[in-house]
Design a protein around this nucleic acid. Structure first.
Lengths: 236, 236
DNA sequence: CAGTGGTCTAGACCACTGA
DNA sequence: CAGTGGTCTAGACCACTGA
């Protein structure tokens, strides 16, 4: 517990800690406002202020007439689960494979370096792959992984899930930030995807991070507009 | 003003509307809590509750000793907060407006009916709007809202945030499911967006739901590929 | 200094839940 | 019905900004 700060922050911290440390588990009921009020010798409004804090942070859910309950995080996890291409296609019952176009250790390009928080000339492993579903090309991706995070990466078999490989090295993808736009692809990518230069493509720029916030990879993907749709669930 | 809903919601809506309709602009100061309190004959705590609402929605910023100001926002890395177009652009510090193309009460199309869980010939309010940022067309959207949820909807001023309007009727967007693809737009939409028929577009199909799971709206949006990028954060 | 928002109190009535 | 959270009031003292 903190001890400093405002009263409502202390109350909020107290319950946040109980939940973080699993002393209060999913679905458990918190004491009522009146009880917390008595426990901390705080007015009900101060207690409510504290509860609002942890509702806001997604820790609990309050139901009039029933009480405050530790939230089941399952729903949100399912809501927008971050998947790799292989995993995503498997979830749809499709068979995903890759054709490795090119693997290299290179000096990092400026844009990739910025997203990976590396110095401009740092070394990165560069991987170009064509992603296929049921043997048909669906997307082309160019992945950049900081070399020092996984020096042997370019010796590995990259025909399957990259995330599985990384996970086996203890590099677990935690979150990703993506930018999705519509456009065209350059000639050589069009040829790989077997589409016309005038065919629209879905272009996704993705940065994935480890739990501690370290950027793990920077990916530029080009999806065939006629073969791929990106799904997202969002909540308020 | 609406007349229904809670007092704090009415106060919050009042100022949200002033900001949406540009009667209060970026950097403008809102009246002090005492003034709002007198104006609405509400206690200070109720006023504060209202202010918290619109702080939460990213509309204003409060500074102790100075006052409450309409937010001049750069972009902040929020999680994956579900926003309407107006709100999203505001968060990027951009000025969003709409041109209403067409509003109608129609028998629901099969696809919209399916997503809205309505019978095939149920009545829906159909709204076609052109969304502009700094006066330039960015997207065209076609919204379907079940008629019975908000019968007077087509009498309302639809130039600003639809979600604000709905919220004032107690119809609060809770979650949304979206499908994003790349493609082209039909002739008439290209003309509205002021692009060539061969220009790529980002097409988003969205279904939004109320907290109890009732579908609230079905939207087909067509974004100019050169003017819009969709951002998503995902976690594992 | 007057004016602002931030924290806090004690107390009230209400709507909702479940026995 | 008792217990819960939701809304609302009137009033207090505080910390901070700016003249």
């Amino acid at each position: 517990m903190t001890g400093n700060g405002t009263k409502y922050a202390q109350i909020a911290d107290y319950y946040r800690l109980l939940i973080d440390s699993k002393k209060l588990r999913e679905g458990d009921r918190l004491p009522s406002e009146a009880e917390i009020s008595a426990l901390f010798k705080a007015s009900r409004i101060t207690v409510r202020r504290a509860m609002e804090e942890i509702v806001q942070a997604g820790y609990i859910e309050r139901i009039q007439g029933k009480g405050s309950f530790v939230r089941t995080l399952k729903r949100d996890m399912q809501l927008n689960h971050l998947k790799g291409f292989t995993e995503e296609m498997r979830a749809k019952g499709l068979d995903a494979t890759s054709r490795v176009i090119d693997v290299n250790m290179i000096a990092c390009e400026a844009k990739a370096a910025e997203h990976l928080k590396l110095d401009a000339d740092s070394r990165v492993t560069s991987i170009k792959r064509l992603r296929l579903v049921n043997g048909e090309p669906v997307s082309f991706e160019h992945v950049f992984v900081p070399f020092h995070l996984y020096p042997e990466l370019y010796h590995e078999d990259l025909r399957n899930s990259l995330y599985s490989l990384l996970a086996r090295k203890g590099l677990k993808v935690h979150r990703a930030s993506q930018s999705i736009s519509a456009g065209f692809a350059p000639q050589e990518i069009c040829e790989l995807l077997n589409i016309s230069k005038k065919a629209p493509t879905l272009n996704i720029e993705r940065v994935t991070y480890l739990e501690d916030g370290t950027p793990l990879e920077y990916v530029l993907s080009t999806y065939r507009g006629d073969r791929y749709t990106f799904h997202v669930d969002m909540s308020r």
